[in-house]
């Protein structure tokens, strides 16, 4: 590797050690002497020191969306995450159950824990997917409107955007199909679906909110429409994965 203006690699290669105080006193003194007379090495040293100082000043990076709801949903439904040795449906995004996640359980989650997951979904996603799971007796398709009576942490009631008319039917039937498949899905898979859908729902929510503030904005309208199409693509793909896993 060659570095720019690196005239004395025998010195520059150890300048980081010098900066970090990692040299023995004798070598350190020799470095100081060399630096006193060599502008090239001094230049490199100053550059390294600036990198070091700026790195040390780098601050936290707050997430751009609230991650707590997803965490809360998982820790409030411990059974849903406790599926070591589960038959993980081969979603490529599915993480393998890790050994320290919890006790061994059968590969099908019990109804009650499924309901917990569903309930937490209402909280996190506010999607009709959860609503449909809870009202699985009702076969009529319902457009994806935020569940009323949800705690509305992410999706305040009344802000849900109705999907474009041409997508509504397919969206709701895919959601229903997924809701029905949910009972046989591995909890990890459910979690991934839940998380990804919540990202999409959040995007829908965000662009809908922006559109409410600026209803004439054609770009925002188009964007919202595009996000709904992405949701449709995602649900189609999820449905394919679920089908192939049957």
């Amino acid at each position: 590797m060659t570095y720019k203006d690196n005239e004395h690699p025998e010195w520059t290669d150890r300048l980081s050690d010098f900066l970090d105080g990692g040299l023995d006193p004798e070598t350190h003194a020799a470095f100081e002497a060399h630096l006193g007379e060599c502008g090239s090495c001094r230049g490199v040293l100053e550059g390294l020191d600036e990198v070091r100082r700026r790195a040390a000043a780098l601050g936290p990076i707050e997430p751009t969306r609230d991650l707590w709801a997803g965490i809360a949903a998982t820790i409030r439904a411990p059974a849903a995450g406790a599926a070591e040795g589960a038959t993980v449906i081969a979603l490529p995004t599915a993480e393998r159950a890790r050994p320290d996640i919890g006790s061994r359980r059968s590969h099908r989650v019990s109804l009650s824990s499924m309901q917990l997951v569903a309930a937490s979904l209402v909280l996190v996603v506010g999607s009709s997917l959860a609503t449909l799971t809870l009202r699985s007796q009702s076969p009529t398709s319902t457009p994806p409107v935020a569940a009323t009576g949800s705690e509305g942490v992410i999706m305040p009631a009344g802000t849900a955007a109705p999907p474009p008319a041409d997508l509504a039917l397919e969206l709701s039937s895919l959601e229903q199909a997924l809701a029905e498949a949910r009972g046989v899905l591995d909890p990890n898979t459910v979690r991934i679906l839940e998380r990804n859908l919540s990202v999409i729902e959040q995007a829908i929510e965000d662009s809908h909110r922006a559109l409410m503030q600026d209803p004439e904005n054609a770009f925002l309208a188009e964007h919202l429409d595009r996000v709904y199409h992405r949701k449709l693509e995602y649900l189609r793909e999820a449905a394919r994965v679920v089908e192939s896993a049957d």
Binding site: R54, A55, L58, G59, I61, T64, R65, L91, P92, T93, N196, V199, I200, Q202, A203, V227, R230, E233, Y234, E237, A238, V241
Partner: peptide, 26 residues
């Protein structure tokens, strides 16, 4: 090219709020 990831990354393009300096460094 994971399941849905491409879709997700196209849906969500969060603008990072950060000072230019820190952004360059990151």
């Amino acid at each position: 090219q994971a399941f849905g990831e491409g879709i997700l990354s196209r849906v969500v393009a969060p603008p990072r709020r950060s000072s230019g300096h820190a952004l360059d460094l990151d």
